[in-house]
């Protein structure tokens, strides 16, 4: 039996490889979630009926199906249908698109916090509606919902563990930790370090968003 510290040092290659798999997974999913979430939010507030409908269907689909089910559909379902999808694409796609639906809703609420007068002012200057959305409405909506985005991103980082535990079986921090646990039977020690790994990511995200909040906060 080795101690807490020895478990980490003896299995550092597994832990660090798992950590960086998780890091990559959440980093790419984050980008997808922000980009898709912004587009969907823009569709939902656009003055075009069919865009509203498409945006609404997106949100209701991805928000109302468990992430685990999405992962199974994306990986096993698509393979069964003859689409040669790999684990990374299935994992990142599911996690990113799932989180995007929540981000779209948070942003939409931020859009409603931007006053009608802001839109009037931008339109009166000759800006088109899409430009008004891009330059005036969405930047203010983002700044308003930074605290909500922080919660969603932290939830996304924790949800990433579902990807490792699922049929997709990416060798992420959770998966590697279970491997080490199976070899050493030191459950408490191993998952202590797994928890530390997730904490490093979530606390970094917390601090980053706290910085954004102080940096970009709108004083009205």
């Amino acid at each position: 039996m080795s101690g807490l510290w020895e478990v980490l040092t003896e299995h550092l290659p597994e832990f660090s490889s798992g950590f960086f798999v998780t890091f990559r997974l959440v980093a790419i999913s984050f980008v997808i979630a922000m980009v898709v979430g912004t587009l969907v939010a823009a569709m939902r507030v656009a003055p075009v009926r069919w865009l509203n409908v498409v945006g609404g269907v997106y949100v209701e689909f991805f928000r109302n199906i468990p992430l685990l089910v999405l992962l199974i559909i994306a990986f096993a379902g698509l393979r069964r249908a003859g689409v040669p999808i790999n684990g990374w694409v299935a994992g990142i796609g599911s996690l990113g698109l799932y989180t995007a639906s929540y981000i779209a809703e948070a942003l939409r609420s931020g859009v409603f916090a931007v006053g009608r007068g802001q839109i009037d002012a931008a339109l009166s200057l000759g800006l088109s509606y899409p430009r008004t959305l891009r330059r005036i409405v969405l930047p203010q909506a983002f700044r308003t919902v930074i605290p909500a985005l922080a919660s969603l991103i932290i939830a996304m980082i924790k949800n990433s563990a579902i990807v490792g535990a699922s049929i997709v079986a990416l060798p992420d921090l959770l998966k590697e930790s279970r491997q080490v646990q199976a070899e050493t039977f030191q459950t408490n020690e191993v998952f202590f370090w797994a928890a530390v790994g997730y904490l490093v990511l979530t606390l970094t995200a917390t601090l980053a968003f706290r910085y954004f909040e102080s940096r970009f906060q709108i004083r009205r």
Partner: peptide, 11 residues
């Protein structure tokens, strides 16, 4: 156009 509430862009 100039508005009663100014409507400057706060960001």
């Amino acid at each position: 156009m100039v508005f009663q509430q100014f409507n400057l862009f706060p960001h």
